[in-house]
């Protein structure tokens, strides 16, 4: 899509411009002001993965968010008994924003299902990129809180408030 070879630049757009529009579509970055968004879009990079390639592995601490531009990826939990697929993500999904905010270990692995093309942002770049814009920090907290709460809301909604054994484990949003 936006690899320099393929871009014949009819509309005058470049990867940087594309990155801005992609980031604005997401709920995590969308609320940021344009100045900060420009810097983050500039700091993003692109990467292509072959089917079976891992974007990150369980236990890694690399710290990176991924936006899927095209293709599919699956989230898997690696246990002693084998690999359990949790779910798949397609075009337009943004994953790993929590690892931008703090140094944490991956609890899952993310694997490319087919030819996968992503935009990615590393934690160090994210941290340094927002540092000159302190006014964005409350917005980021807000986005993060929104994401966690709405995730659990959906979870509860889809289980009708009763999912047997899992009821005792819900409540991540009151952390």
């Amino acid at each position: 899509m936006s690899s320099p070879e393929g871009n014949d630049n009819h509309g005058g757009s470049c990867e940087f411009q594309d990155n801005i529009s992609l980031l604005r579509e997401t709920s995590f970055f969308g609320a940021l002001n344009l100045e900060a968004l420009k810097v983050l879009a500039y700091l993003c990079s692109r990467e292509a993965y072959k089917p079976g390639d891992y974007l990150f592995r369980q236990g890694d601490e690399e710290g990176c968010a991924f936006y899927i531009i095209s293709g599919k990826a699956r989230l898997v939990l690696e246990t002693e008994n084998g690999i359990n697929e949790i779910r798949q993500y397609g075009t337009g999904s943004l994953l790993g924003t929590l690892s931008l905010v703090g140094h944490t270990r991956r609890l899952f692995s993310l694997q490319a299902v087919d030819e996968l093309y992503v935009m990615l942002l590393e934690r160090e770049k994210f941290m340094k990129g927002i540092a000159p814009f302190p006014e964005t920090i409350p917005k980021i907290f807000q986005s993060l809180a929104n994401i966690i709460v709405s995730w659990e809301e959906q979870f509860i909604g889809s289980h009708d408030g009763s999912c047997g054994a899992c009821t005792s484990k819900i409540g991540v949003s009151i952390l």
Binding site: F16, K38, V39, L43, S45, E124, G129, P132
Partner: peptide
């Protein structure tokens, strides 16, 4: 124009200038 617009007011950190 573009680079000054994006990087003009950022601290002179190496990481901003890699690209």
């Amino acid at each position: 124009r573009q680079i000054v617009d994006i990087l003009g007011n950022l601290p002179p950190d190496e990481i901003f200038f890699e690209q």
